[in-house]
């Protein structure tokens, strides 16, 4: 059942990419794409275990869509913040590498969290060790690991927890 679901996910994923690539598409291209996606999904599902870890319930999908908006909002906010620091005459930065702890357990969840942290300007994930992430932060304004986790991780984590676990 789990493998069937993984195959279906790969098939849908490949087909959507193909449709975006050939948009506006004809029925001929659609059929060819569907056949190739189906073949790939049938022969490769076992070798991509990371797809099998994803949750696919309706709750995960709704929170996933909500996460897109939350993430885009954070992206704009931190972009403006970094832009302000760049243009300021004195360059008001307080850089440093801090340590944060995540409660996510799945590999794909941690991947999504680390990439979200890196994509927001002002923070880069430098290294990960198990549940700890080392993050280069442009404005260190927290004293210990709880505060840094609260500042950097929590806003993404509460959504990713539902989506990936």
């Amino acid at each position: 059942m789990k493998r069937l679901l993984a195959r279906f996910l790969i098939f849908t994923f490949l087909l959507i990419i193909w449709l975006l690539l050939t948009y506006p598409f004809s029925i001929q291209e659609l059929t060819a794409g569907a056949v190739v996606s189906l073949l790939i999904a049938l022969f490769s599902a076992g070798s991509i275990p990371i797809f099998a870890e994803m949750r696919t319930g309706p709750r995960a999908i709704i929170w996933g869509i909500a996460y897109l908006f939350v993430f885009f909002f954070e992206l704009v906010k931190s972009n403006l913040d970094v832009a302000f620091r760049v243009l300021h005459r004195k360059i008001p930065i307080q850089p440093g590498i801090v340590k944060v702890r995540t409660t996510l357990t799945s590999r794909i969840g941690r991947l999504a969290l680390a990439n979200s942290i890196t994509l927001t300007p002002g923070t880069i994930t430098v290294e990960t060790k198990g549940e700890y992430f080392y993050v280069h932060w442009i404005d260190v304004r927290a004293r210990n690991i709880e505060e840094t986790t609260q500042n950097i991780v929590k806003k993404f984590e509460k959504y990713l927890e539902v989506i990936f676990g």
């Binding site: 992206l75 704009v76 972009n79 970094v82 930065i93 994509l119 927001t120 300007p121 923070t123 280069h136």
Partner: peptide, 16 residues
């Protein structure tokens, strides 16, 4: 001032 902070602006202001 340094490579890490340059990366903060250089690689990420470019995302948006």
């Amino acid at each position: 001032p340094d490579v890490y902070n340059r990366m903060q602006t250089g690689t990420k202001a470019t995302t948006l």
